[in-house]
Structures are given as C-alpha cells and as structure tokens.
C-alpha cells in the first residue's frame, strides 16, 4: 500500500492550494510567532476549500482566528495556546487542543484565551487546558469540554439547538436568481405556507413546529475544574456541567445562571443560595439527570485521560470510578439549577 504523504504548511508556504491538492490531512507549523493570524486563517480556508478535513496545527502561540468560519465535517488539532476569538462561527467541526513543547524547549499549556467558540456549532470542542472569559458564548449547539477552569460569563446566551431545516437549505440553486426570480420564489414559498396554514388553522400549524423543536440538541458545556462569575448568564437552553475535580468547596463564582430563561446547570460541590443569579432556583436531581451526568463524566474521562498530567488523571479516574456501577456518591454531590417559574 502506498504511504500517504502528509504535507506541512508553514510561514514560508506561498501556494497553499498547490501543496494540499488531493490531501485529506495537513500539518500547519505556526512557528510559535512566525505565522500571522490572518495568514493562518486564510491557509485553513484555502485548504478546507481543497477538501482537507484534518488539520494539525503545531507550535501555536496565541494565534487568533483558528478555525473561524470553518465548515465541517472537519477536525482540527491545535498543539499550543489558542488566542482570542478562536473557533468562532465554526460549524460541524471537531477541535482539540493539546499542551506542547515549543522548539526552544518551552512548555506551552493547551489553554485558550477569550471568547473561544463564540457563536459556533462545533461537533466537539475539547480544550486540554483552561479557557478564559466568554467561552462558548452565543453558541446555538455543540459539545464543549474544558479540562481546566473557565473565566467569567462562560456559556453566555447559549441557544437550544439548531433545527435540521437550516442545514437542508440548498443555497447553490438560489445563487443565480435575479430580482424577479427572487420575488417569484418568495411568493411561491409563501403560497405553500399559506396553503398548509389554511388547511389546518393556526393552532395546528404551530403544532407542526412543536415536533421539530423537540428534535434539537442544545449545547452542552462541561468544565473539569471551576468557573468564575456569571456562568451561563441569559442561557436559553444550554446545559452546563461543572465537574470541579479539584476544589469541592468552591465550584463557581457569583451570579450563577443569572437571567437564564431555559436550560439547566449541574454544579458539583457547595453552591450557596447567595451565589445564584436572578430568576433561578435549585431543583432536585432526577434519575434522568443521573443517567445524563454518568454519560457526561464517562465521555469526559475518555476525552481527557490520555492528554493530561498524572495528578489530573488520578482525579478524573476517581470521578469515573465514583459513577460506575450504582454508586450515588458522586452524583449526589451535584446541584441542579433551573429557571425559576
């Protein structure tokens, strides 16, 4: 069998399209500070356009715009520190970050800076370190896992999931329409809608959408350690889990879930009433919650146990052991927070 060559792009690469032609996997060497943010973003866009689905970014040190606007299915592995606003507007993409050693021997954590994954719909976003403020803010759907801590306002205004209809629109067939064709198309679609509406009446018409609403998957945020203030502020359907493997007494800052209209937060450890935000309350855990949390913990363990340091590994191993079998010990440490009324 012929061995598949994996091309490497770097700061010196000029013709990206030529190098990546026919490849599914590509390595980009960011050279610590050599490669600029805009050029890196451009390279990834061109490579994605050529059909590359697997990106490995090495020696990343604070580059922004990584994965911004990348449409999947694709996979991005980042070795190093992601900069501000990375993974924004991403769609159906898996992004992992790993700690790395730079060529000069300096160790760099797999952390990420501010506003990572904002307004995005990733399949998975696994940060092998800590994140700062506004992680996963405005995100309508996706799985967000962070091994370490989160900053302020993580999960701000998360949505309740993207309906399938949005991914089924065929934009290519609509791109060449002139004014009159557009108006004709709009009116045609309106007539279809009106016919459906008149056939069943307004109440039943809306109920058709109710079924679609139930098929959505809300964004899920999982933090290995604690978060700071305003966790899931104004959330609109997000599910947040704080596993808090280090400091059981201090899982989150103040104003937890302030102004949340829908969604649920599960926080392991001591949460006093005065730390809750406006319009939210504690709720009792149900069997379904326990089942969900077990699954989240097992997935979290599987994602991170290979890439973290030994101490962290022992702690999440203990967490996994605590939920295997019928043991309720770990599950009972969770507080469930839901909107009040």
């Amino acid at each position: 069998m012929e061995k598949i060559q994996i091309p490497t792009l770097g700061p010196e690469t000029t013709d990206v399209a030529e190098v990546v032609k026919g490849c599914e996997k590509v390595v980009i060497d960011c050279g610590v500070i050599e490669l600029s943010d805009e050029r890196l973003s451009e390279m990834m866009k061109i490579a994605r356009g050529e059909g590359v689905t697997d990106f490995i970014l090495r020696n990343v040190c604070g580059q922004t715009l990584i994965g911004t606007g990348i449409k999947g299915p694709a996979k991005i592995d980042v070795h190093g520190l992601m900069g501000n606003h990375c993974a924004a507007f991403m769609d159906q993409t898996v992004l992992n970050t790993y700690a790395t050693n730079f060529p000069n021997g300096v160790w760099c954590p797999g952390d990420a800076q501010v506003a990572i994954g904002n307004t995005s719909n990733p399949t998975e976003l696994n940060i092998g370190g800590s994140v700062d403020d506004l992680f996963a803010s405005y995100s309508p759907s996706g799985m967000f896992r962070v091994a370490g801590q989160g900053g302020n306002r993580c999960g701000l205004r998360g949505g309740a999931g993207v309906p399938k209809a949005w991914r089924q629109v065929d934009y290519d067939s609509l791109s060449d329409m002139n004014k009159d064709e557009i108006k004709e198309d709009l009116l045609y679609k309106y007539q279809l809608r009106k016919a459906r509406l008149n056939a069943v009446g307004w109440r039943e018409f809306l109920t058709q959408y109710e079924r679609k609403v139930e098929n959505r998957e809300p964004p899920t945020l999982v933090f290995g350690r604690k978060v700071r203030d305003y966790f899931m502020e104004y959330a609109q359907g997000t599910i947040g889990v704080i596993l808090n493997v280090y400091d059981i007494d201090d899982p989150a800052g103040y104003y937890i879930c302030s102004g949340m209209t829908a969604g649920t937060a599960y926080i392991r450890g001591k949460v006093s009433e005065d730390r809750l935000g406006e319009r939210v309350k504690f709720a009792p855990l149900t069997d379904e919650d326990a089942k969900f949390l077990r699954k989240v913990i097992l997935d979290f363990h599987e994602t991170f146990h290979d890439r973290m340091n030994d101490e962290y590994k022992t702690r999440i191993d203990a967490l996994k052991d605590g939920v295997s079998g019928d043991s309720e010990e770990i599950i009972s440490q969770f507080n469930k927070i839901t909107p009040a009324g």
Binding site: T119, R157, G159, I182
Partner: peptide, 21 residues
C-alpha cells in the same frame, strides 16, 4: 433563503439564530 444575498443580518447581542449560513 433566495433573498439572503439582499439581506444584512443583525448580529445584535448574538443571542438568536443558528449562525450556520
């Protein structure tokens, strides 16, 4: 959808919408 190319989307405070297109 056919008129999207004539539309300017308001990002607003970012809270509403799927942001896939």
């Amino acid at each position: 959808a056919s008129a999207f190319k004539h539309c300017i989307l308001q990002f607003g405070t970012g809270g509403f919408g799927p942001w896939v297109d």
